[in-house]
Amino acid sequence: MGLLKLLRKLKSESNKELRILLLGLDNAGKTTILKKLASEDINHITPTQGFNIKSVQSQGFKLNVWDIGGQRRIRPYWRNYFENTDVLIYVVDSTDKKRLEETGVELEELVTDEKLSGVPLLVFANKQDLLQAAPASDIADGLSLHTLSGRTYQIQACSALKGEGIQDGLEWVMKTVSKKKK
């Protein structure tokens, strides 16, 4: 690790700041989750053309959450945001059976990228409130999460719309990061 990077890392640890990267296909619900975390209105969310960033406080940590648009055309830009990521949150639309494979391929790209190696992964199986949502266990199978190696991960069922499961996911994040930083 370069000196500059090390210093930056030490600084961010002393301030208890975390850089969280929120990725996933278009329409997965990333921005809705971000806005829900910041207790903002979720009825008028435009599909993201670039990225959104918000800082939220949680258990004494300052979470800087980066939400990057998931449209196929702009996925190649995801990698510009990988640097210094503390936690990766990957959001899946649990009702989108047609694109379960596609979302798996994108996740595979992320977890094999060197810049994200060892970064804890939280998968949100979102939109559980909807009738056709597949259970989180099916999403885990579809994404072949069990084949991940060398990485702490968790899958959490949630509904950004109802606000359920989001906090449970965050708690896992905080627990995992505190353990790691000891």
Partner: peptide, 24 residues
Amino acid sequence: MGCFGSKEKEDPEKKTEEKKYSWD
């Protein structure tokens, strides 16, 4: 840190036992 496996995998199961969401 490479701790995946039994310990991490137990957690979600425990949780679903304790916690019922509206969709359950």
